[in-house]
Design a protein around this nucleic acid. Structure first.
Lengths: 204, 204
DNA sequence: TGATTTAAAGACCATTTGGTCTATATCTTT
DNA sequence: AAAGATATAGACCAAATGGTCTTTAAATCA
């Protein structure tokens, strides 16, 4: 039977560029400048692709942007899955989750901002593809945090009267708000103190 | 001495448009679409000005945008000064402040988003004029909230161990985060419950 | 009425935008 | 070596960008 059903090997010159790497570099520039402010030449520069290759590989600017956004979101979800891993102590996980945001909102990292928030504000209202992705991301995030809080509650680690769903929304809003105000004032130590103070109100 | 020092009366055709009203309409469109996505024709349409008049009155797109942003920020500060008026009960003030955000993040209002946050994400990193205004706005807001919390503490209304400065940062981050996630999911009731739950953790 | 000032209308401009296409060089397999 | 496949470079395009300028109509005061 050998290779009768296998896809024939491609002939000729092989792809010489790594599409995933190009998406990552495109993500970087969208992240730094936003969608509208990123022009084709910027994308060609960072991906080191010619116009023709870029359009052949990704279709158009908007599709490439969606790929970049998906990549950014996937990275964020992966991080959350590690920080809030159900096999860990839930409160430790929540501390790690908050610590990650403190780190990402401090100094230079903070000034860079967040591609999801920038995209939310710039495009979500008028771009259904974007809106879907962002809404689902925030939902996933809130669910993961609520889950960790539920586990903490079951272990008797939550303060009296704390509702996991409410607290999850509060924590998510807090970290997203952090990323906003840290664009202009990325003050790490103060942020850490605020994050600690907030979590301390919820745990016992 | 009559009118010796007075400015001579203007001759000829008087200004027939209200600059402040034009700024407000420009603010509306920047608010809905963002800076880059707002094109000159959009501004001409909503202000009902000709190109010449607009440039004569405001200089250029960027200057008009700064006027619009200043207007938006001034409105927000005015609102805060009413909600957090020192002559009111501080906790009532904080409730009013949060209620205002719940309202602005619900339904259609929520989908509209916030010009300050959109501008922060789109321009603050690369535009010093914008950065100054935004940084100062967030500082003012945090200070007003911290002030109300200090007054509440002095009146014995705060829970044990709550630091007004920390709590202020938490509340500001929470409301700004609310505005972000409400762009795609403006769920008013849930938001109100979260706001209540958060404030309840700080007051006695 | 006539002088003066203003705004509107829109022609005009250089530059930039996202996007297409062709010619050429390069690489791999047969 | 030949054939086939792919990437690059860059010319090219129409449309849109922010911005200037001139002409004309309108409104006011002297």
């Amino acid at each position: 039977m050998s290779n009768r059903t296998s896809v024939p090997l491609p002939r000729g010159r092989p792809r010489s560029f790594d599409a995933e790497a190009a998406v990552e570099r495109a993500m970087d520039v969208f992240w730094s400048r936003g969608y509208h402010a990123t022009a084709l030449p910027d994308l060609l520069r960072v991906t080191k692709l010619s116009r023709g290759s870029l359009y052949a590989a990704f279709g158009d600017k908007h599709s490439l942007f969606l790929r970049a956004l998906d990549r950014y979101i996937a990275d964020a979800v992966t991080r959350m899955d590690i920080e809030l891993d159900p096999r860990k102590e839930p409160v430790d996980g929540l501390r790690a989750y908050l610590a990650g945001y403190v780190d990402r909102t401090s100094g230079t990292h903070g000034r860079r901002g967040c591609l999801v928030i920038a995209t939310t504000m710039e495009l979500a209202g008028r771009d259904a593809d974007v809106n879907r992705r962002i809404a689902s991301f925030f939902k996933v995030m809130e669910a993961r945090v609520a889950d960790a809080l539920s586990r903490a509650k079951a272990a008797g680690k939550l303060a009296d009267g704390v509702d996991p769903a409410n607290a999850a929304r509060i924590l998510v809003c807090f970290v997203e708000g952090l990323r906003v105000i840290s664009k202009t004032a990325p003050t790490g130590a103060i942020t850490q103190a605020a994050a600690d103070a907030l979590l301390d109100r919820f745990i016992r």
